[in-house]
Design a binder for these strands. Structure first.
Length: 185
DNA sequence: CGTTAGATTTCCT
DNA sequence: GGAAATCTAACGT
């Protein structure tokens, strides 16, 4: 765990287009609250020409972080119940983010079980992974290059599978969902 | 100020 | 495979 401190991904990684960041986040380690997991599923949300993205509505109190400095967290409450974690991409001033949809649990699995109230699937969904790692809206806007929420490079190069995004009703035909093929499990 | 739809999960049949 | 749970941002009046 200590050698991961030096492997925090620096800001330029995130200052690229959302599709590239979404692809390259696969195989990285997400760390928070004594728990961690390898990112195995992501979706890219674009700033323009993407009606499914919250940023399509322009800059509002809710979406301003998506237009801000890359490498920060965008956390929102969905369906009144679930916290969803996104990582802001694109240079500052341009909207774009990556929804983290699934993790493979690595550290603190017992703690995850407690947080998930002993549900069978610990982190196989956007609302599940935030619950497992103890992530909530107080982390909205947090800088991932500083912590306590961080992403680390494990130097893995997973096989990437691409599909359309799921769980949305607009712009459903875009191939913006990415899965780490051999890590999913 | 009231209405509505939503980047989901879980439990039921 | 379908519906309920539960809250709030965004939009219309």
């Amino acid at each position: 765990v200590n050698n991961r401190v030096s492997s925090i991904i620096p800001r330029p990684f995130y200052a690229r287009d959302a599709v590239t960041v979404a692809r390259e986040l696969l195989g990285k380690l997400l760390v928070h609250g004594g728990t961690s997991g390898i990112i195995i599923e992501t979706e890219a949300y674009l700033g323009i020409d993407d009606l499914a993205a919250h940023s399509a509505a322009g800059i509002t109190p809710r979406t301003k972080v998506i237009f801000g400095e890359p490498g920060h967290a965008y956390v929102y409450l969905n369906y009144g119940i679930h916290e969803c974690l996104n990582i802001v991409a694109e240079p500052e001033g341009t909207a774009g983010c990556v929804l983290l949809r699934a993790l493979k649990p690595v550290d603190g699995i017992e703690l995850m079980r407690t947080r998930r109230r002993h549900a069978k699937d610990l982190a196989g969904g956007p609302g599940k992974l935030t619950q497992a790692l103890g992530i909530n809206r107080t982390l909205n806007g947090a800088d991932l290059t500083i912590g306590p929420l961080t992403v680390h490079d494990l130097r893995l190069t997973p096989e990437i599978q691409i599909t359309e995004r799921i769980g949305i009703t607009k712009s459903t035909d875009l191939p913006l969902r990415f899965l780490a093929a051999r890590l999913t499990n």
